[in-house]
Design a protein around this nucleic acid. Structure first.
Ligand SMILES: [Zn+2]
Ligand SMILES: [Zn+2]
Ligand SMILES: [Zn+2]
Ligand SMILES: [Zn+2]
Lengths: 159, 159
DNA sequence: CCGAAGCGCGTTACACTATAACATTGTGGA
DNA sequence: TCCACAATGTTATAGTGTAACGCGCTTCGG
């Protein structure tokens, strides 16, 4: 029957359903295209670049072009379903934005980038967030958001 | 006579001289090309992109190409004379790496990015650095360095 | 019913950022 | 002299991101 594209694992489909509910609560729509892009991001165990997404997307949408994926990513970024890892020019799914509850996190978010396995873990350490807030205030800087990307070797790779 | 390229303000020339001394202490050479690229970065009051540098560079070196500037930047980045602002794909001079003393900073460095005037200020807040170290350790993550880029409005722009 | 307005997406073309690969020049040591 | 190395020149290409226009669809007031 192929309603509109790919199908993902049950876990991911559940998260996509949660995202769809959150969208409609906000008067937005998680269209089939956006749902598929989000699914592809969530299905990747590493950050995935826009053009890698495009390649995957073309399996079901042969005519997809860069704006296709960038527009979907823009939508997903605005709502916090995905994040961009600036150092990698790649995107990861937000674990808290699509869990069953959908509690949109405070977006004092940090990324732990493992240079060994390539995986990126998101954290919401309050100590870092408040240290940033204090440092900004001390500098007379009215901060709106911060990018914190920590490079190193994860527990699994360190052995 | 045109020894090798542009000439900068006395303040910048002094910093370039300091950088040259630091290089020779390390057995490296701040060649005329590298010196000129560093001078251009220091002369910019905002982060400057590689291709903007290239445009400036071509006033004195007509045949300069992307590798010309990227190789110079690689050298300057390795020694901490410049930093890359990931969110902007642009480069800034490090205030502490080229001061008279040349104390190479611990590189727990943060950037305050003003979305209003476009200027970027470097800070070395110890509170942020230690909060990152603690959070990483708690996650079993052996961290090597961190990118911290704080977006907001600077004191001058906030009024 | 009609037309305007807005959204989502297709499509084309292009701009911007970065690197690979090989050639050339100059310098200093075996 | 010959070699090795650093630095740069040179050409080509890879990777990342947007602008601009158009089309189909829905909604809503007239
Ligand atoms: Zn998140
Ligand atoms: Zn790892
Ligand atoms: Zn610095
Ligand atoms: Zn400002």
């Amino acid at each position: 029957m192929t309603t509109s594209g790919l199908t993902f694992s049950p876990e991911i489909e559940a998260r996509l359903d949660a995202a769809a509910r959150l969208c409609s609560q906000q008067g937005a729509t998680l269209t089939p295209l956006r749902r598929e892009v989000l699914g592809l991001v969530l299905a990747s165990d590493q950050p995935i670049g826009a053009y890698a997404l495009l390649d995957h997307l073309r399996r079901s949408r042969a005519t997809a072009a860069p704006p296709t994926v960038y527009r979907a990513l823009e939508f997903l970024l605005e709502r916090g379903f995905v994040h961009k890892v600036e150092r990698l020019n790649a995107f990861i799914g937000c674990p808290s934005a699509t869990d069953h509850a959908g509690h949109d996190h405070p977006h004092a978010v940090q990324f732990l980038i493992c240079t060994c396995c390539g995986r990126v873990t998101e954290t919401e350490d309050e100590g870092i967030a408040s240290a940033i807030a204090r440092a900004a205030e001390r500098a007379g800087f009215r901060h709106t958001r911060a990018t914190v990307e920590i490079e190193g070797v994860c527990r699994a790779c360190a052995g």
